[in-house]
Design a protein around this nucleic acid. Sequence first.
DNA 1: TTACAAAGCGAAAACGTTTTCGTGTTAAAA
DNA 2: TTTTAACACGAAAACGTTTTCGCTTTGTAA
Lengths: 350, 350
Amino acid sequence: MKRKVTLKQIAKELDVSISTVSKALRNSIEISEDTRQKVQAFAKLYNYRPNNIALSLKNRKTKTIGIIIPEIVHHFFSKVITGIELVANKRGYNVIVGLSNESFDKEVINMQMLANGSIDGFILSIAKETLQQQDYHHFTETINQGMPIVMFDRVVNEIPCDKVIVDDVKGAKKAVEKLIANDCKNIAIITTKDYVSVGKLRTQGYLEALEDHKINPKASLILKIEDKLLSDDHLDNLENEIEQLFKANKSIDGIFAVNELYAVTAIKLARKLGLEIPKSLQVVSFSDGVLSKHSTPSLTTISQHGQQIGEKAADLLINRLELDETDDEEEEVYETVVIETDLIERESTK
Amino acid sequence: MKRKVTLKQIAKELDVSISTVSKALRNSIEISEDTRQKVQAFAKLYNYRPNNIALSLKNRKTKTIGIIIPEIVHHFFSKVITGIELVANKRGYNVIVGLSNESFDKEVINMQMLANGSIDGFILSIAKETLQQQDYHHFTETINQGMPIVMFDRVVNEIPCDKVIVDDVKGAKKAVEKLIANDCKNIAIITTKDYVSVGKLRTQGYLEALEDHKINPKASLILKIEDKLLSDDHLDNLENEIEQLFKANKSIDGIFAVNELYAVTAIKLARKLGLEIPKSLQVVSFSDGVLSKHSTPSLTTISQHGQQIGEKAADLLINRLELDETDDEEEEVYETVVIETDLIERESTK
DNA sequence: TTACAAAGCGAAAACGTTTTCGTGTTAAAA
DNA sequence: TTTTAACACGAAAACGTTTTCGCTTTGTAA
């Protein structure tokens, strides 16, 4: 077991100074062709690689991006990570992941663990608990210490940072308009409680679409689910609530669900109650995961392009990091990028 | 924008030495109660946190674990990460993620990026391309440099490291035995080509189960899919091959699929051909993802307990890291932990 | 009063780099 | 022969810690 070789060891071995070795390896013109070759050969032989930590300390930057997300077992978030990792690697950065598990405390702790020099900047999506408590001091503090943040999907406007979001309102409108165009007359929405920002926005899109087509929204067609972590209890509860919805509103012929799970659950119960998809009930869902594509019937969805969101977020962050390097203190101006959604038609609509 | 405060700044501000500040903060008895309080108050005021990178350099360990997995948009792998992150955080470690995207080159590059001091050890699952090429030099080199590796799920025996695997053979046997017990007479398997180790092992389990019950395996009932990354082309191809399988073997009444996707695709095509699930065709699948639970009919599966695998892998790695600290060179003896699978019965079997 | 121990603190090294600046040697120009 | 410039290299600082060791001051015992 040979430990990693350092400049110092090479220097001693070759009887030159550390500086000489360093310069030789970086092809400095200060070093004679002769010693340069000798050093490089030796370095290659012993498979020398500069120690990243030492470089980070010296350069005061780590070339590492911290990601904080609520959970990773989630198609959307893992797609985003894929996107982040893709451009991060391409631009010479690594990616370190922290999970908040939707908890405020874990979000704070994770950020503190990483903010002490381990990373150059954050890409994150806010935990539900944080959104509920509306306590954002850990974000502002991080930013005040000069560490840039890029938020995606679940964002809050008052934080000064770049943001990448999907146009939830517009996406929801697209979904509902599809149902309207397909002759649905009684369109229900299955959404989350309002404190989840995307749930609120999608509900808003639903209402706007109805309004645009002179349809009066009916409160009984709006089902807001308490969106706890997906325990089995929660699933039972979800099924009950949806079943009530159908039983209380026999005329429902269209459903807009704010996520896949709500959609497939609705379909399952609708079938149990004798409805045929898409003949007597059409369904459109937000979020474009594996369920949409592979369940039967496959779901017509509003695709969020998670990977693209990740790529954009990473580019924004790295751009800012590498811009900060050159000109120091200009007035910071932050960008909010909106990633357009697409309607992907599958079997759950006519 | 106040930069992060360092020991040096505190020292200057309070007109003491850096050493004094450091000791005061760590409650050394060398320091008088008086100055200790002064320093600690000042540090708290300015929200001092030791710089992680500097600590890493000094201690020659980073308290960070590197994970290399083929892809992250995958229920099993993200479950494993959840498990790793859980125990890593609990034990004071961070987690840095690299994706190989099933490519040998990306696997090597990612490992090199991280092995230069950024992390203390690896947890990884081998890329398909690497398995195919059987080139494992990057693993042995890493280990030779004194950096421990824990492999999970896709492992190779000849590498000296701890491993966490599921008993694929036994799991597959459980699945097939369930079908046999449910009176299936013609059980087909949909699996991957043999170079994917888990595919091979599950096929072996299928054969063993048949043999145990004196059933002669029929080559025509064994469908081996070329398991490229899931492009849409690949999906079409998958459907074709499965359709051929059904058409050529009308008597199939049981299917064992090595993953969810194969299972739901098979169900979809079986229905198209007029088969009823589970009445005339029963299906059991490996892997316990979101499709199994929420598609209709839900799938009877062999659950792999991804999170548990991650937790175990992290514990093994950290144990080894913290053991290396104390007694240096004893004979390394490596462990292979087998995580038992469970049969989870749902609607796709009687 | 002298000697000595304890208390309180600082200097410096170490982790592994990069880079600036200084210095000695050699060859070319005066 | 003397001056100068180019060349090749080394010393040292810096990044932010922790820790060992040594030094000064004070109080106490002889």
